[in-house]
Each structure stands twice: as structure tokens, then as C-alpha cells.
Amino acid sequence: MKSISLYVDRGSWLNRLHPYTKLLYILTAIGIPLIGGKLWLFPFLIGCSLCLLISAKTLRQTLPLIGFSFTVIIVIFLIQGLFNHQNQQLLFSVGFLRFYKEGILYATRIGCNILNMLLSFAVFILTTSPQELVDELEKSGFSPKFGYIINSVFQILPQMMATKDTIMDAQRSRGLETEGNLMVRMKAFLPLISPVVMSALTNTRERSIALEVRGFGRKQKKTWLSDRPKHKEDRVIRVILIVLILATVVWRILSCR
């Protein structure tokens, strides 16, 4: 079955890291430029994330994300460069379009932020199995119900997508036109979507019975099939990340004086 999760196990060292370590990385990557406040910090961190993605062999999956974010960033550049209300200093002009320094600077900051966040999240999402994340959350005391919901979404959504095709065929067989102009499509919407939703609801009910009879509702300490093997890397990396954040804070305070 297809999974909607972007995660793929490539057996890289990032796959083996604890999910929390990777979450800390996101925090660091976003936090440092925010705290440090200097624009040049961005390329540094974006470079970092890119290196990580390459070493996890997942750069290919990131490309569409980057491509998408670039279209957004270009739009921001156009709007800000042309129309930012603080625009004063003319930077350059293309034909009758005049770009101003203030707007471009502002856009650069937003663009870098977007890219930086996106890539650091990509590092996390592409290398962490949702199952593992949920297990770890549960082990550190989050409610199993919470974990279950996150997790089953990854498993059950793809199934819903699959039934959608069957439903479409079933309704077309009863003479429903599903292709054509907007009106036709609008009319086809309800016959297509209701069965998806309704069968999802019945399935959910049945599944909650199935969970109940397997002791899911018990207020009892769960046991686990395995402990995560502890990796030295986790501790080392966490320490480095925390030191980096602290160093940025200190540096910021010093440079403010």
C-alpha cells in the first residue's frame, strides 16, 4: 500500500537519530538566525540543511519542495521589491518596473526564512518514521490516543484515496458524468465525496471496537517490543546544538552593547 508519509528508510545515520534530536535541529536552525538577527546566518544554515539532506540521500525528494518554495519566494520578491511601503532607494529597473532596496532586503529575509524552515523540516520529515515518532512521544508520556490518531492518519488516508477511484467508477456506471465543465463537476461532487466520508465513518466505528477489544482503552503502563538502541551521536549532537543556540544568544547580547 502506498503511504502518504514522505519518509523513506535509506538506512542513513539520520534515520537512526532519535526523532527528538532532529526536532532540536529544527529549533536550532530556525532559532539561530532569529536570535542572531544577521542575514548572513541564513545561507550558513540553509547550507547545513542541504548537506544533511544530501548525506541522508533524500535530496531528490526535496527538490519539488524547493521548487515550490521558489515560486512563492519570487512572488514575494516582486511584490515587496515593487510595492513595499518603505521603498525609497531605487536598486535597479527592468523596463518600467522599478525595484527598491528596502523591499528587496525585506523579501530576502522572508525568502531565506521560508527556505530555511522548509529545509530543516524536510530533514526531519524525510528521515523520521512516523511510527517511531509516535512511539517515542508515547514513551515520554503523551497520550496513546494522541499518538494513535497521528499514526493511523498515515496508514488509513491512503486507503481512502484508493476507495475514491472505485467510487468514481461505481457512480459513472450509474450514468453520472464526472468529466466536463465546472457545472458537471460540481454536480458530481456530492455523489463522489459522500460515500468516501460515510464509509470512513463506519470504518472508524468498527475500528474503534476492534481497538477496544485489544485493550487499547486500558489505563495501564504499556510495554514495548524494543527499546531504541541508544546512539552516542544523539547526545553529542544535542550538546552541540544547544551550545550553538546558547553561543548565538551570548553573541547577540555582547554585540548589542
Binding site: 494513535y148 475500528r207 485493550g215 487499547f216 486500558r218 495501564q220 514495548w224 524494543s226
Partner: peptide, 26 residues
């Protein structure tokens, strides 16, 4: 299909699901 917990991605893990809830030793 509706009896699978939907929270485990292997048969082995799926079968373990109930035992985990019962707190059975590893």
C-alpha cells in the same frame, strides 16, 4: 481491514499491539 489497528506497519508489530496494551513483558 477494519480490525487492523492501523498503527503498526508490520505484521509482527500489529500482532504485538494488544500485548503492549496489556503490559506483557517483552
Amino acid at each position: 481491514f477494519n480490525q487492523l489497528s492501523g498503527a503498526r506497519d508490520t505484521v509482527y508489530g500489529e500482532v504485538a499491539f494488544g500485548l503492549q496494551n496489556l503490559g506483557v513483558e517483552r
